[in-house]
Amino acid sequence: MPFVSFEDVTKIYHMGDIEVRALDGMNFGIEKGELAVVVGPSGAGKTTVLNILGGIDTPTSGKIQVGDTRIDQMNERQLTQYRRHNVGFVFQFYNLMPNLTALENVELASQICDNPMDAAEALDLVGLSDRLNNFPGQLSGGEQQRVAIARAIAKNPDLLLCDEPTGALDYETGKTVMELLQAESMRRGRTVVIITHNQAFCPVANRVISVHGGKAVKEDVNENPKSASTLVW
């Protein structure tokens, strides 16, 4: 039984009279500690996968399991608790609170969960121990994304979800971010799921799930993932 499993998951949006099937029988599984990449073109349904897996949206039908819990049947309150304790989110546009320092942004997350990592320690892990008291406006994009990663991992989540984490970054900084995410899975055994349209990340992943038309069209397991530092795109 994989750590994360999607079984026949559908998601139908109603836009006026038009019915949009964002997920149309999605099936895949991710083992614990794996770095998984969900890849596909725009409109393939990968963001919907992220939303549902992250507990910010609910499926129309199907079964989703994360660890021992079914999240497809959770109500809003349970989902909030799930996001609070089990999921770490890294956004494409960082979504840091502009009015909080780097340290405080991390604390914002760590203070609400049961078993947090020390905020300063989390920032140290992402190499920002000397920028603790800087506000997001005073940091570069890559630094901001690293703060966002620190914020996500400070919660000690079972699952780290990343939405185009390098999408707004240049090549070099993007690579640093990927190294950090790979380290999370490899060294600390955290399950990391990265949503991207960029095929270049596939070689560093343990598992690559290709989605198209709301379905997982291919699931590749990579026995020997490359180190993120060797990435070229």
Binding site: N95, M97, P98
Partner: peptide
């Protein structure tokens, strides 16, 4: 809105 949405994603309960 963005900050609020992020807070919700981070798992803040409505009261928070």
């Amino acid at each position: 809105r963005r900050e609020i949405a992020s807070l919700k994603v981070l798992g803040f309960v409505p009261r928070e």
